[in-house]
Design a protein around this nucleic acid. Structure first.
Lengths: 227, 227
DNA sequence: AGCAACTTACGCAAAAATGACGCAGAGTTG
DNA sequence: CAACTCTGCGTCATTTTTGCGTAAGTTGCT
């Protein structure tokens, strides 16, 4: 499954390591930043799924960072969990008002943090999963049931096959590069050879039988679902 | 809809007023208490839909109150949101373990509090509505009696097994991620490894005997009850 | 148009990775 | 203490990825 990418921001090495260790153990992909400038750059460049932001930062202040992120449309809907040290009451309130989604006060137990992270991301995932099913020609793709029907006959697809088909069929006619397909399924910076996608396409076509021809090869570019 | 009644417990007049004002503005009916004894009495007498409970109380301690409420079957299923001073993680953890449903650390923004209140009540309403018993194939699940019948023969399931089965069987065909299952049973904040869910599934299948096969594994995603 | 020279896709099969589950012990709760 | 729940590790089955050889498609040149 696409591991969610979390940007962790803190200037204390210990905290950073603690957080990294625990999130990593729970299957999240971690990137870190130490200064406010770094956060802004990395957030814009990598568009993580969540930012854990210490409010006490050298350089640009954490609240400032939060505000900037929330006012840039590109990064505005990345949820933010603030880390605050004891005795910064006012910061929490203003942070929440600036659009932060939640907060955890230091010192924190890893469990609490994980729980918060999961809750926030769940919200986003739930939105994804609830996506309406796709009906196109004689094919019905139902993501919440993970089921594909060809003329009402179910077909058994693997995880990647299913996601590939769903990705393509959601936007018929639109051409996807191999990397867009992989990115949609495994997350942006998942590294594979082109071959890996080809093979999935081929086996997908085979399983779709006579409907396999709806998946078209666009030579030199990628694949698309026939419009 | 009937306005939900919320019992707010705090010994600081300011906090009480702030909370009352905001909840009132959002259409909830407020009752207040200042001491632990008062809470217990009012909770039992009025059975509010939710209790917002400060942990720092004169007289009986907040955690103690929480525990008492949760161990009395009359009040056990009233959800509790704890109010904690910041940096008292130990309290939060033990509070959640004692059965509190959520927590908010002071100082809090009214927005956050309202959001939490809404979320908790929503969940409870959903839970109430879902109480209908499920009959699917040869299996009957009766949540109010906590009883499962296979071809009219009762099976003995543990708490988690029962809830897992019920969660899946309520929506046959729908795939649940492991965390959706845990979330439905233990609440969003509950943290476990994937393995914990797997084990429940396995033992559930075993107890269901030949009907165990209705619980299907969806590789890479989660589980579902066969449609 | 016809023909090289080159690029890109695909078939096949083996290697690598991943996910589910059995087992057993550790941790909790009552 | 007993029942229940959770975790870690090893194993096995399935899925995913890769590499190589061949087929198919493109381009440019005569």
């Amino acid at each position: 499954m696409a591991r969610e990418r979390i940007l962790v921001v803190d200037d204390e090495e210990d905290v950073l390591e603690l957080v990294r260790f625990n999130l990593d153990k729970n299957g999240y992909k971690i990137d870190t930043a130490v200064t406010g400038e770094q956060v802004l750059n990395k957030a814009r460049a990598k568009l993580p799924d969540l930012i854990i932001l210490d409010l006490m930062l050298p350089g640009i202040d954490g609240l400032e960072v939060c505000k900037t992120l929330k006012s840039d449309s590109k990064t505005a809907n990345i949820p933010i969990i603030m880390l605050t040290a004891k005795g910064e009451d006012a910061d929490i309130v203003s942070g929440l008002e600036l659009g932060a989604d939640d907060y955890v006060t230091k010192p924190f137990s890893p469990k609490i943090l994980i729980a918060r992270v999961r809750r926030i991301l769940q919200r986003n995932i739930a939105r994804e999963l609830d996506k309406a099913s796709v009906k196109i020609r004689e094919i019905v793709i139902n993501p919440s049931r993970r089921e594909v029907l060809l003329n009402n006959k179910p077909v058994d697809l693997t995880f990647t096959e299913f996601n590939t088909l769903y990705t393509l069929a959601k936007r018929p006619g639109q051409v996807f590069t191999r990397y867009q397909i992989v990115g949609a399924i495994r997350g942006e910076d998942y590294v594979v050879t082109d071959r890996a996608i080809d093979v999935q396409i081929v086996s997908l076509r085979k399983k779709l039988g006579s409907y396999g021809k709806y998946i078209e090869t666009v030579r030199g570019v990628g694949y698309r679902f026939k419009d």
